[in-house]
């Protein structure tokens, strides 16, 4: 599904990713944990194609295609989804307008017919219901006036609508209380499937009690320094990241 080989990337001329190797198979959920400044968010932005994150070496293939050669919107259309650490507000644009435009752009790319207003409304209502979101939320402007938990759930609704093959959840747990976290995790779990892979990025083990990963990796100072099963997360929770060194040592 996704193969990252020796990936190097810089931001503002500073090397942040220093040779990442990672293979994710269909249906697998991988977690990346690591201390602040280890490059977790940089990795998610590089995979999603954000401007300003320059790849200086290595390769990423997604479903056999060269991911790094694509623009951000092409990656989304091919089925890469990034759930944002801080979902962005777009005043005056309703969730339905935003998602309809996005979904139809993606469907067009995938060779599917565009949905008309009625078909779309039916679909979004069904998806919102399955995520326990009310109709009011889909009518409001994108993320404007949403609570932290609502913003994250809104991102999960977008994921449910766009049906990506590979989803990156960037610190989805940040800023959420335990009830909101459970709601978001339930949403994510309902979207797990044999054809959908996920990369869950987090500081804390807590999220991984709800979204149980198949593999856990430790990212420290630009490299994956250790990989293991879900029990690795518990070990990190107990010991912290100290053993993986400090930025100065890297």
């Amino acid at each position: 599904m996704l193969e990252i080989k020796n990936l190097h990337a810089t931001v503002d001329g500073k090397e942040i990713l220093k040779g990442i190797n990672l293979t994710i198979n269909p249906g697998e959920v991988h977690a990346i944990m690591g201390p602040n400044g280890s490059g977790k968010s940089t990795l998610s932005y590089v995979l999603a194609g954000r401007d300003g994150y320059e790849v200086t070496g290595g390769s990423v293939t997604f479903q056999g295609k060269d991911l790094l050669a694509m623009e951000a919107e092409e990656r989304a259309a091919e089925g890469v989804f990034l759930a944002f650490q801080y979902p962005v507000e777009i005043p005056g644009v309703s969730n339905t307008t935003f998602l309809k435009t996005a979904l139809n752009a993606v469907r067009k790319h995938r060779g599917l017919p565009e949905l008309d207003a009625m078909q779309f409304l039916k679909l979004i209502r069904a998806k919102a219901k399955s995520l326990n979101m009310n109709d009011d939320m889909i009518k409001r402007a994108v993320n404007v006036g949403f609570s932290g938990g609502e913003k994250k759930r809104n991102d999960i609704l977008q994921m449910a609508m766009l049906e990506p093959g590979f989803a990156i959840l960037d610190e989805t747990d940040s800023g959420l209380d335990i009830d909101a976290l459970k709601l978001v995790a339930d949403g994510v779990n309902s979207l797990r499937g044999p054809e959908r892979s996920m990369l869950v990025i987090t500081h804390y083990q807590r999220l991984l009690s709800y979204i149980v990963p198949d593999h856990v990796h430790v990212l420290a100072y630009g490299k994956i320094v250790r990989s293991g099963g879900k029990e690795l997360a518990l070990e990190l929770e107990a010991k912290g990241y100290a053993e993986f060194g400090s930025p100065e040592a890297a």
Binding site: A48, G49, R50, D51, E71, A72, E73, R75, A76, A77, F81, L82, F84, P87, V88, I90, F98, L99, T101, A102, L103, A105, V106, H109, Q158, L162
Partner: peptide, 9 residues
């Protein structure tokens, strides 16, 4: 970027 990450040009 938020829009583009959702497939909009």
């Amino acid at each position: 970027f938020y829009c583009r990450a959702r497939g909009l040009s």
